[in-house]
Amino acid sequence: MSNRIPADLPAVDHDEEGRERRSYVIGLVLALVLTTGAFAVVWLDLLSGAAALGALGLLALVQAVVHLRFFLHIDLQRSHRDDLLLILFTVLILLIMVSGTIWILYDQHMRMMP
């Protein structure tokens, strides 16, 4: 079970390895582009106000999906769907808690205004 030598690995694995290697490289390149894009929005003042915040939020969302797809290998295959469902459920819980907190605290803050 342990320490199997490389010689008994099927030859087809080399294609598989190349494919998985490419997946990480694609993920890295996309993540670098998205990160640099996000910082460029702020550094170069490409957008301002709500447009800037919206663009940054969108870039972050896309980058999170890139990381999940290419680094954590979450995809839409049926055998793999429990993991996806669990993360989607977590995101739902997370959105309810975060938006609820921000809403309630903002409301309280407004009521505290002199």
């Binding site: 990160t35 996000a38 800037a52 915040l53 939020g57 972050a60 999170a64 990381h67 954590l72």
Partner: peptide
């Protein structure tokens, strides 16, 4: 590996919503 990749996903949130939002708004 899963733990490490997930921490990087959390960091996306931090650099966007803490650092970039903080400076942009």
């Amino acid at each position: 590996a899963l733990f490490w990749h997930m921490l990087d996903v959390v960091w996306i949130g931090i650099f966007t919503f803490v650092y970039l939002f903080g400076v942009a708004s």
